[in-house]
Amino acid sequence: MNPQEEEWQLLKKVQQADFVVVELTLYTDTHPNDMEAIQQWREAIKEAAKVRRQYESRFGPLSLLSVPSTQAIEVGWHWNSTPWPWQR
């Protein structure tokens, strides 16, 4: 797999993990007493954070609140760098 393909695949994993959080957050908004869902939500947040760290340590932050890794800065990462989501 070339680096570009690898980046795309890892980004898809971030999108998947983050989507689980989006969905469970919405569900728990209207089901505040569903303890099983809240437990799933806790695990989903941890999983999303783990996958995000994997992505960001290599390819740079996806959000302005993420801390850029030394590795990302070394390879010339800048927030204002392409591709933006619609340019992929």
């Binding site: 999108q15 989507f19 989006v22 959000s63 619609w86």
Partner: peptide
């Protein structure tokens, strides 16, 4: 709000 440099779901 904080911008996330990715789409909610991939668009091809």
């Amino acid at each position: 709000w904080v911008y996330e440099k990715k789409l909610l779901y991939p668009v091809e």
